[in-house]
Design a protein around this nucleic acid. Structure first.
Lengths: 262, 262
DNA sequence: AAGTGGTCTAGACCACCGA
DNA sequence: CGGTGGTCTAGACCACTTA
């Protein structure tokens, strides 16, 4: 190839591997390396850009982190996408943070019962009619007392019997119990939020007028192979709860670790 | 130190840098390097474990990706957490996905006006009393017609004048306009969701009873240095909207790039 | 000025894959 | 088998922070 024109400037401000990342990303975007094809092998890139293999690998690593390529030992570096999308991500250090407010709440256990899912419940739980579930009825109070913040109905598989006892102790986290009693890690949580007129049973628990404005939150906890481990149906009355999320732009930037001061 | 006992087995199955990562992670967990302290400098780690600096750096890089430490040129490697927490992440390919439903909606522009923030509005917009804002009044309809799904009041800085014209064309995305007219990328979006009795003005737009159950969503769009670029105040009536999010467990697995086949 | 992590080179051997 | 990416060494110079 025309090695001369491909030389990476060593005097430029940006490190070489970052220049290389940008250059390769542009060539991928412009079709020189179509999606599905293989990038040239590392030795070839070293030669073309007159840099060491370490530099090439660092550059390709960034492409990899941006999802543009994937590497496979013995095969090569395959182009997976032609352009890095903007991606906004939100992260939680634990599912507990889904309900950050809950740090300052106490759980109260109200009761439990076995239920056979009728058609409406089955649809809500994404299961089949006639399935057996164990329903746990709970609510959360502020630690300083007062009216409940939320009415929570938690559905788990019947073999999770025994969770009730743990719940009665009062400061357990549903998702933790689900993992302990279900013997399986929660790999994904899905959440659906919407408005609702508070239904009668929740209204009684929460001490508000039936039909008054409320927030419903359904959470589905999934394990391996999208196995449904638990479903929680929550109702919050107006003014006692807000749900905050932060979405940050995930920089496909080269910066990696260096960035922020402490 | 007792270098002999710290030698990393070269015969073991796992690569040295992964063994090193695991070893350091354990020592952090067990308190040898408390949170807030500095890890020994790289040359020292090289000596202690009798490995090259490259290997040490690869190991520390993994600790970094797991969030256990952070590196700072000229300072050192600081311990940030004593144990790798489970982390759940949700990602969007664009802010548009925050309102996935909106793919099938049309925007309708209702009007705009300049406002001086009074105390209540200033608090809502996280700004100061007396600040000038440009308020854009809009709502969204299903493409197939019918009642509006949401009443949106968007606040932008006054210099964004001209956005109205773009809005009147009908299929613009607020966040896109904010970037175009503000001349700045949105680096972060914050979202607060809660229940609300639909206020009078929104009720008129939405065609529902004032005070009936609704969902409010406040979104704050931030640019560089957390500069507030825009705020959007949305009200959804019951039954016309649900808000879904998926949180997936992000594996802090050591595997890095090697893992999956294509 | 000294010490930190960040970048970079020039080599080497290995595990894995496909022909 | 040859070629790929994965790991590793032993050096070097630089940018940045702190004192």
């Amino acid at each position: 190839m025309d090695a001369a024109s491909d030389v990476i400037a060593s005097s430029a401000r940006a490190p070489r591997y970052q220049q290389l990342t940008a250059l390769l990303a542009r060539e991928i975007r412009e079709g020189r390396y179509p999606v599905g094809s293989l990038l040239p092998p590392e030795p070839q890139l070293c030669q073309r850009f007159a840099v060491s293999r370490h530099t090439v690998r660092e550059a390709v690593r960034l492409l990899c982190e941006q999802g543009l390529v994937s590497r496979h030992q013995g095969v090569g570096t395959r182009v997976r996408a032609s352009q890095g999308q903007k991606r906004y991500v939100a992260s939680l250090s634990s599912l507990r943070d889904l309900m950050e407010y809950a740090q300052h709440t106490r759980l109260r256990y109200l009761g439990s019962r076995r239920v056979d899912a009728d058609e409406a419940l089955a649809r809500l739980l994404r299961g089949n009619e006639g399935e057996q579930w164990l329903e746990l009825d709970t609510c959360r109070y502020p630690v300083e007392g007062g009216l409940p913040i939320v009415h929570m109905r938690v559905f788990v598989r019947p073999h999770c019997d025994g969770m009730q006892n743990a719940l009665e102790e009062g400061d357990a986290w549903i998702y933790g119990l689900v993992e302990r009693y279900g013997g399986e890690r929660i790999l994904e949580a899905q959440q659906v939020v919407g408005a609702i007129g508070v239904p009668d049973d929740s209204a009684r628990v929460l001490g508000v007028e039936p039909g008054s404005p409320g927030l419903f939150v359904r959470r589905y906890y999934l394990g391996r192979g999208d196995r449904l481990l638990s479903v929680s149906l929550n109702v919050y009355p107006v003014d006692r709860f807000e749900f905050a999320t932060r979405w940050r732009l995930a920089e496909p930037a080269a910066a990696s670790t260096g960035g922020a001061k402490e």
